[in-house]
Simulated assay, not measured.
Amino acid sequence: MGRQKNKSIPKYAGSGEFVPITKKMLLSQAWRKMTANQQRLYVLGRFCCFNADHPRKDFPDLLMMQKNDVFYLSFQKAVKMGFYTKSNKKRFYEDMHQIENLGFWKKITLAPRYSGGELFPRAVYKMTADWENYKPP
Rank of each mutant, 00 (worst) to 15 (best):
Tyr42Asp: 00
Cys49Glu: 10
Lys33Ile: 08
Pro136Met: 08
Lys77Ala: 06
Phe120Gly: 03
Leu110Phe: 11
Gly2Tyr: 02
Tyr42Ala: 02
Val19Gln: 14
Ile99Pro: 02
Ile21Phe: 04
Gly2Trp: 13
Trp131Val: 08
Leu26Cys: 02
Gly103Met: 12
Val79Arg: 01
Gln39Asn: 09
Ala123Tyr: 07
Pro60Val: 11
Val79Cys: 10
Lys89Asn: 01
Ile21Asn: 00
Asp95Glu: 14
Ala36Leu: 08
Gln76Tyr: 06
Tyr84Met: 00
Glu94Gln: 12
Ala36Cys: 04
Lys80Glu: 15
Leu41Ser: 02
Lys89Ala: 05
Gly116Tyr: 12
His97Tyr: 10
Asn68Ser: 15
Ala13Arg: 12
Gly14Ala: 05
Asp95Val: 10
Leu62Pro: 03
Arg56Gly: 11
Ala111Asn: 03
Phe120Lys: 09
Tyr93Asp: 08
Gln4Asn: 07
Gly14Phe: 03
Asp69Glu: 09
Gln39Trp: 03
Ser8Met: 13
Ala30Gly: 01
Thr22Gly: 02
Thr35Leu: 09
Lys89Gln: 15
Gly14Glu: 04
Pro60Trp: 09
Glu118Met: 11
Phe92Gly: 00
Lys80Gly: 07
Val70Gly: 09
Glu17Cys: 13
His97Ile: 08
Ser8Asp: 09
Asp95Phe: 00
Cys49Ala: 12
Asp53Leu: 09
Gly14Tyr: 02
Gln39Val: 01
Met1Asp: 13
Met96Ala: 07
Tyr134Asp: 03
Ser15Trp: 05
Gln39Gly: 11
Lys67Phe: 11
Arg40Pro: 00
Lys126Gly: 04
Cys49Thr: 15
Val79Gln: 06
Lys135Asp: 10
Cys49Ser: 11
Leu27Pro: 02
Leu63Thr: 14
Leu44Arg: 14
Ala78Tyr: 11
Glu100Trp: 00
Ser74Val: 10
Leu102Ser: 05
Glu94Cys: 08
Ile99Arg: 03
Ser115Val: 04
Asn68His: 13
Arg56Lys: 15
Trp31Asp: 04
Phe50Gly: 11
Met34Val: 07
Ser8Arg: 12
Phe47Ala: 03
Ser15Ile: 02
Gln29Phe: 01
Val124Phe: 12
Asn88Cys: 14
Lys77Met: 14
Pro136Tyr: 06
Thr109Leu: 08
Lys7Tyr: 14
Trp31Leu: 01
Asn101Cys: 14
Leu73Ile: 06
Gly14Asp: 03
Val79Lys: 00
Ser28Trp: 00
Thr109Asn: 10
Ser115Lys: 14
Gly117Pro: 07
Ala30Val: 09
Lys77His: 02
Arg32Asp: 12
Ile108Asp: 04
Arg40Glu: 09
Ile99Tyr: 03
Pro20Phe: 13
Leu44Asp: 01
Lys24Trp: 00
Asp130Asn: 05
Gln39Asp: 10
Glu17Leu: 14
Gly45Cys: 08
Gly103Val: 07
Gln4Pro: 00
Thr128Tyr: 02
Thr85Cys: 03
Pro55Gly: 05
Phe47Asp: 01
Leu102Lys: 07
Gln4Leu: 09
Leu73Gln: 06
Gln39Phe: 00
Pro121Asn: 01
Met81Trp: 01
Arg3Tyr: 06
Met25Asn: 07
Gln39Arg: 12
Gly116Lys: 10
Gln39Ser: 04
Ser87Glu: 05
Lys80Trp: 06
